[in-house]
């Protein structure tokens, strides 16, 4: 896909980096003039995907998380990739309330939240082991901005 603008982030799978990742991605998306709701949806989805890397992909070690963000004029494409332990059954992992760590008060709602807040969510086995989550979010045209530009 051809993007108007793109960026890649690589960081350690430390929980302290979750806030950094969601803030950095949302700051990058601001150039599309998203609404506050759209930005918060993206932020939350990123937080879910990165949490999965921190908690599940690298349970006993610190690994690398790679986020790619590509922008078209009205769509955000995001990929969150790890080289961790991987997921055996990708479909089961997406089921609401499914968790491999019920004793840790995990809700098992991460993928459900991603699916609800984004327009598409794809879960793939990564070539080098681990998984990749690909998500898209359409950014509706900012009516107010468009109108203002017309008037100018």
């Amino acid at each position: 896909m051809k993007f108007l603008n793109q960026m890649t982030l690589k960081f350690d799978s430390l929980s302290v980096n979750e806030a950094f990742a969601r803030s950095a991605v949302s700051a990058f998306c601001v150039q599309l003039n998203p609404t506050l709701d759209e930005i918060t949806d993206i932020k939350t989805a990123i937080s879910e995907a990165v949490t999965n890397c921190v908690v599940h992909a690298y349970p006993n070690e610190v690994g690398t998380v790679e986020i790619f963000v590509g922008l078209t004029k009205d769509c955000v494409f995001v990929s969150v990739k790890d080289n961790g332990v991987g997921i055996v059954d990708l479909n089961q992992a997406r089921e609401p309330f499914f968790t491999t760590k019920p004793d840790e008060e995990r809700a098992g709602m991460g993928f459900t939240v991603m699916e609800s807040f984004m327009d598409s969510v794809e879960l793939l086995h990564n070539k080098n082991g681990g998984v990749e989550v690909k998500m898209t979010k359409k950014i509706k045209e900012n009516k107010l901005m468009a109108k203002k530009e017309q008037n100018v």
């Binding site: 969601r22 932020k43 939350t44 937080s47 879910e48 949490t51 840790e104 008060e105 995990r106 809700a107 709602m109 991460g110 459900t112 939240v113």
Partner: peptide
């Protein structure tokens, strides 16, 4: 100001 599904587990607990 922000909460993701990890927060759901905390609240239910």
């Amino acid at each position: 100001k922000f909460m993701d599904s990890t927060g759901i587990g905390v609240l239910i607990g």
